[in-house]
């Protein structure tokens, strides 16, 4: 027995080293495989507060850019709202009581009323949030948002910005949420090429933060540079048709079943401030149907 203790004491350095490395390995594996280990990431309250403080200071230096981006987004929204109001689809809906008035009401309230009264249930809701930490140059990039469970954010929701797809919610705490960025080596996003309607999968190969790879496009499809790649809507994360990027190179390699397509991402991940978490109100229904029918693939 004494020999045993003597042995342990003699090799204590190595044994402690081994023990700690096993601890680390456990943490790494557990964190990669599922959404556990909630404390050991930046969504925990203390780390969140430190990073938010840092971001508050840094934000003063880029107010102009942020305002510009918000103005652009506003303009785009206004345009699409006008399009909705003047489109045939809504005109064919029976007039609402308001339309008997001669005074022209405010277009925004009108649109709101039309959407509400004509039975269009809003499947997707958007929760605005601010990025307080992000990285683009690691192999697995994450983001931290200043919104959390109290704002209605849940794990596995999609995240978009005015320009396009950002990522997916990983963990939420009361006031913060960590996001798998699109620039995460294990993030896969279902996408399609808008012109040809071909479905594929967007992944990131870890080198250039402004480019991604579109996989599983069959070889007979002819792609042109500049073709738009958008979300497919085949999973409940994102609405259909959210911008992802544009094709910059499509080539055939003799030993591959599919085309090798490179996509320039629409979002500038270096400069992110305001993003929206997508809340799908029919998600539970959709998931349970898929689970019951046995087609829910386990990612």
């Amino acid at each position: 027995m004494r020999n045993l203790f003597a042995f342990i004491y003699r090799y204590r350095g190595f044994l402690v080293f081994l023990l700690l490395q096993i601890c680390c390995a456990y943490l790494i594996v557990r964190n990669n495989s599922y959404h556990g280990a909630a404390f050991y990431n930046s969504a925990n309250g203390y780390a969140g507060r430190v990073l938010e403080f840092q971001r508050q200071i840094a934000d003063y230096f880029r107010l102009v850019e942020v305002n510009q981006a918000l103005v652009n987004e506003n303009r785009a929204l206004k345009e699409s709202l006008t399009n909705i109001l003047t489109s045939d689809r809504l005109d064919s809906i029976p007039p609402t009581p308001d339309s008997t008035f001669r005074v022209k009401p405010d277009s925004l309230t009108l649109a709101q009323q039309r959407l509400d009264t004509t039975g269009i249930v809003r499947t997707f809701e958007f929760i605005p949030g601010k990025v307080i930490k992000h990285s683009v140059r690691l192999m697995n990039n994450h983001m931290l948002l200043n919104i959390g469970r109290l704002d209605g954010v849940e794990p596995d929701m999609g995240v978009v910005s005015g320009a396009g797809v950002i990522g997916r919610v990983k963990v939420v705490s009361k006031h913060y949420a960590t996001i798998y960025s699109l620039l995460h080596s294990q993030m896969k996003t279902s996408a399609k090429v808008r012109r040809t309607n071909t479905e594929g999968t967007i992944t990131w190969d870890g080198e250039n933060p402004s480019e991604a790879v579109l996989d599983y496009i069959p070889r007979h499809i002819k792609l042109a540079n500049g073709d738009t790649v958008v979300t497919s809507g085949y999973n409940a994360l994102f609405p259909e048709g959210v911008m992802i990027g544009r094709v910059i190179a499509a080539g055939q390699e003799p030993d591959k079943m599919f085309l090798t397509v490179r996509v320039r991402l629409a979002v500038d991940f270096d400069n992110l401030t305001y993003v929206y978490v997508v809340k799908n109100n029919r998600r539970a229904e959709r998931d349970s149907l898929e689970a019951v029918s046995g087609i829910k693939d386990n990612e």
């Binding site: 190595f14 050991y40 931290l144």
Partner: peptide, 19 residues
Amino acid sequence: DIFYDTVGINASACVLLAY
């Protein structure tokens, strides 16, 4: 690691360094 969202990776490298 907590701030980098890379649980265990920095810790593992540091423990190696210390060893």
